[in-house]
């Protein structure tokens, strides 16, 4: 559904992303992982056409760069890490904005399915009772859920998440990832996400792409991912041993 071919992003002399390629199939969830500065978020910014890049992204066989903004929004839906808000929009208004790219007509553009999609997105994220609440009064987790509902209402074919649970408490992390997993169940959909937490990546991802210093260090189906040596090289740490140690205190006493 989504392919990246030889993507390179340069900021002056610094190469942030260096010749990275990947393919994302329908029904799959590709986890983009790697240490800080590996180029994960930059790769997503390039996909969002927010920075210049060399190479080519294609969605359903079409060059993303050549798509009109509304076409791109129907193909790819982005969810950012954080949303600082200035004005007291209601949750419903935020979600409704998601239908922007689906409006038709020149004189009075409107979207006949707006109400249906907004209601469905609110229900799916459990925000129905908060539809009229101001986003300024929401907690970080609720706000992220409101914007997740917005991107659900946008109804893209590929969902692109940039560390969606980075500063959320555990219960929200679980909730957001659960919602995305549920969303992915419908045919014709796929997810691409940047994740810091390797445990979350392994738990939810079907595929993985490990970046290091802007380059692809490893990639493929999640099941083949247990390669301790590559991880040790990339993170400078025996990741597997560390994860087991972290888990140890939670083991029930024998």
């Amino acid at each position: 559904m989504l392919t990246a071919e030889h993507i390179t992003v340069r900021f002056g002399a610094h190469t942030a992303v260096d010749d990275v390629s990947f393919t994302l199939e329908e029904g799959h969830w590709l986890m983009l992982v790697g240490p800080n500065g590996a180029g994960k978020s930059t790769l997503l910014r390039a996909l969002a056409q927010a920075c210049p890049y060399a190479g080519r992204f294609t969605a359903d066989g079409r060059d993303v760069k050549r798509m009109k903004p509304s076409e791109r929004a129907r193909a790819l839906g982005f969810l950012a890490q954080q949303h600082t808000q200035q004005y007291a929009y209601t949750v419903a208004e935020i979600v409704r904005l998601g239908r922007y790219a689906h409006r038709k007509g020149f004189l009075a553009p409107a979207d006949p399915d707006e109400e249906k999609h907004v209601a469905r997105a609110l229900a799916l994220t459990g925000l129905g009772p908060m539809a009229r609440t101001s986003v300024l009064t929401l907690s970080g987790g609720e706000q992220q859920r409101a914007f997740l509902a917005q991107v659900f209402a946008q109804d893209p074919r590929v969902l692109v998440l940039d560390e969606p649970v980075n500063h959320l408490d555990l219960q929200y992390q679980q909730r957001i990832f659960g919602l995305v997993k549920l969303w992915l169940k419908r045919p014709g959909r796929a997810v691409l996400s940047v994740v810091h937490d390797l445990s979350l990546a392994r738990r939810y991802g079907t595929d993985i792409l490990l970046l290091d210093g802007g380059r692809k260090a490893a990639g493929g189906p999640m099941a083949d991912f247990v390669d301790g040596d590559t991880l040790r090289d990339v993170y400078g740490l025996d990741v597997e041993a560390w994860m087991r140690r972290l888990l140890q205190p939670w083991q029930p006493a024998p």
């Binding site: 969002a48 929004a73 129907r74 790819l76 200035q86 929009y89 904005l97």
Partner: peptide, 17 residues
């Protein structure tokens, strides 16, 4: 409205920013 919520968000929504 989309700009008031955030320019990056507006771009993602398909607004010709």
């Amino acid at each position: 409205n989309s700009f008031a919520v955030g320019e990056e968000n507006a771009q993602g929504l398909g607004v010709p920013v």
